[in-house]
Amino acid sequence: MTEYKLVVVGAGGVGKSALTIQLIQNHFVDEYDPTIEDSYRKQVVIDGETCLLDILDTAGQEEYSAMRDQYMRTGEGFLCVFAINNTKSFEDIHHYREQIKRVKDSEDVPMVLVGNKCDLPSRTVDTKQAQDLARSYGIPFIETSAKTRQGVDDAFYTLVREIRKHKEKMSKDGKKKKKKSKTKCVIM
């Protein structure tokens, strides 16, 4: 069974824990209790493949930012979460993405942009803004509501699919490099 290491990042209060708990335990946590770091595991079937999701729910508070490099190193894919009623959390996505790329030393890291709290009427981040940002990053965008469960499975499952595509691409690139290195030079 394939294991996928997913990391949920975003500013404090955007609903990272609520999304994760909704996926794992099928219930909505409405009281806000700032996370330092929590880890969850769940076995699911995605596109006919049974897999184990190892999900790291991270601290959004700035005082825990020193811990970010460590979990970013171990993560295979990242859910970059903002709240649709919090423009600052949307603007912060850029910083999370840049930090992930720096730590992973790669421009090509599996990510999904997630606009959470889409059940709320007080939207300050337009869907088109988020779609445009995701398009500019070359990553999928999904709106979710941890409260109603809308888009929750889709967000995590899409990230797994992005990781699969990335692994497939990397193995193809690896095979191309191996083929090239088999060419021999004969000096007579």
Rank of each mutant, 00 (worst) to 15 (best):
I142N: 03
D126A: 05
I187L: 15
D173G: 07
V125A: 08
E143K: 03
S136H: 11
Q131P: 01
K178W: 05
H166W: 09
Y137I: 14
H166P: 02
A155H: 01
E168R: 03
D154T: 10
G174A: 12
K178P: 06
Q131T: 04
V152L: 15
A130Q: 06
T158E: 13
K169I: 11
Y137M: 14
L133H: 02
E143V: 00
D154C: 07
K178S: 14
M170A: 12
V186C: 03
V160Y: 02
R164L: 14
R135L: 08
F156Q: 02
K175A: 10
Q129M: 05
D132L: 03
R164F: 13
A155S: 03
I142R: 03
K178D: 15
L133Q: 04
V160L: 05
K167Q: 09
K177R: 03
V125W: 06
K169H: 04
V152K: 04
K172T: 12
T144G: 06
K178H: 05
I163G: 00
R149H: 08
R149M: 06
K167C: 04
M188R: 10
T144H: 07
G151T: 15
K177G: 06
R135G: 06
L133V: 06
K167L: 02
G138I: 00
K128F: 06
A155G: 03
T144L: 15
I142P: 00
D126N: 10
A146Y: 04
C185E: 15
D153W: 09
R149Y: 11
L133P: 01
K184L: 00
T148S: 08
S136C: 09
I142H: 02
L133K: 03
D132W: 02
Y157V: 14
K178E: 11
D153G: 10
Y157H: 12
D153Q: 13
V152G: 05
T158K: 10
K167H: 13
E162W: 03
V152E: 07
F156W: 07
V152H: 04
Q129S: 05
Y137L: 15
E162I: 03
S181L: 02
D132G: 05
S145C: 06
Y137D: 03
T127L: 09
R164D: 15
Q131W: 05
T127E: 10
D173F: 04
T127F: 13
T158D: 12
E162V: 01
K178T: 12
S136K: 14
K182S: 11
K175D: 13
R135A: 13
L159D: 00
V125Y: 08
D132N: 10
A155T: 03
L159Y: 00
C185P: 14
I139C: 10
A155I: 11
Q131M: 12
V160K: 01
A130W: 13
L159T: 01
L159P: 00
F156V: 15
D126T: 06
F156M: 15
D153M: 14
H166F: 12
K165G: 03
T127R: 04
K169R: 09
D153F: 11
V186N: 15
S181A: 08
G174L: 10
R149W: 04
F141V: 12
Y137R: 02
Y137P: 01
T158R: 05
L159F: 00
R135F: 06
R149T: 15
V152Q: 04
T158Q: 10
A130C: 11
Y157R: 14
A134S: 05
K172S: 14
Q131R: 07
S145W: 06
K175W: 02
D153S: 13
K169A: 11
K184G: 14
D154V: 05
K178A: 09
T158I: 08
A130D: 02
R135C: 09
I187S: 15
D126E: 10
K179S: 13
K182F: 03
T158S: 07
E162C: 03
A134N: 01
V160D: 02
A130V: 13
R161L: 01
Q150R: 10
A130I: 15
K167A: 12
F156S: 02
D126P: 02
S181F: 00
A155V: 12
L133M: 12
A130H: 04
M170D: 15
D154W: 03
D173S: 12
H166L: 09
D132F: 03
T158P: 01
D153L: 13
D153E: 13
R135D: 15
D154M: 08
K175R: 03
K175S: 07
R135Q: 12
H166G: 10
H166T: 09
E162Q: 09
K169W: 07
K128V: 07
I187Y: 14
L133G: 01
Q129W: 12
D154K: 10
P140T: 02
V152P: 07
C185R: 15
R149G: 15
K128R: 07
Y137W: 14
V186K: 01
R149K: 13
D126Q: 06
V160H: 02
G138A: 05
T158L: 04
A130F: 14
T183F: 00
D153T: 12
F156I: 15
R164Q: 13
M188T: 15
D132P: 01
D173V: 01
L159M: 03
K128D: 09
E168L: 05
H166I: 08
Q131D: 09
A155Y: 01
D132K: 07
K167I: 02
K165F: 02
G151V: 09
D126I: 05
Q129A: 12
A134C: 10
T127S: 11
M170W: 12
E162P: 00
A130P: 03
K176R: 03
K177V: 05
V152S: 08
I139L: 10
K128E: 11
R135W: 04
T127P: 09
Q150L: 06
A155M: 09
H166R: 12
I187K: 14
L133A: 05
G138L: 00
H166K: 12
R164W: 12
Y137V: 08
K176C: 10
D154R: 08
C185N: 15
V160G: 01
E162H: 02
Q150F: 04
I142Q: 11
R149A: 14
F156G: 01
T127A: 08
K176W: 02
K177L: 11
S136W: 02
T127M: 08
F141R: 00
V160M: 02
K172G: 13
Y137G: 02
L133T: 03
M170S: 09
F141G: 00
D132R: 04
A130K: 01
K128L: 07
A130L: 14
R164G: 11
K177H: 09
T183L: 01
R135N: 07
K128S: 11
K167M: 02
K176T: 07
R164E: 13
Q131C: 09
A134W: 01
K165S: 10
Q131I: 07
I187G: 15
M188L: 09
K178C: 09
V160R: 02
D126F: 09
T127W: 08
D173A: 08
D154Y: 07
T158N: 07
K180L: 14
K172W: 14
Y137K: 03
K169E: 11
K169G: 11
V152Y: 11
Y157A: 15
M188D: 10
L159H: 00
G151W: 12
S145R: 01
I142L: 05
R135K: 10
S136V: 05
K165I: 07
Q129V: 12
K167N: 09
G151M: 06
K182Y: 09
F141S: 04
R149E: 14
D132Y: 03
K175M: 04
K169C: 11
K172I: 14
V160F: 04
C185S: 15
R164C: 13
Y157G: 14
T158W: 08
L159Q: 00
K128I: 07
I163C: 08
G138Y: 00
V125G: 10
Q150M: 05
G138V: 00
K178F: 11
G138W: 00
G138R: 01
K184A: 09
S136G: 09
D132H: 05
I187H: 14
V186G: 06
V160E: 01
V152C: 08
T183S: 13
D126Y: 10
G151E: 03
R149V: 10
D132Q: 07
K169M: 10
K147E: 13
K165V: 03
G151F: 11
D132A: 07
E162D: 04
K175V: 03
L133W: 05
M170G: 08
E168V: 08
G174W: 00
A146S: 12
K165Y: 06
K172V: 12
M188P: 15
H166S: 09
G151S: 15
S181V: 07
Y137N: 06
I187W: 05
R135P: 01
Q150A: 11
K176S: 15
F156Y: 04
K184W: 00
T183Y: 05
G138M: 01
T127D: 11
Y157S: 14
A134V: 02
S145E: 14
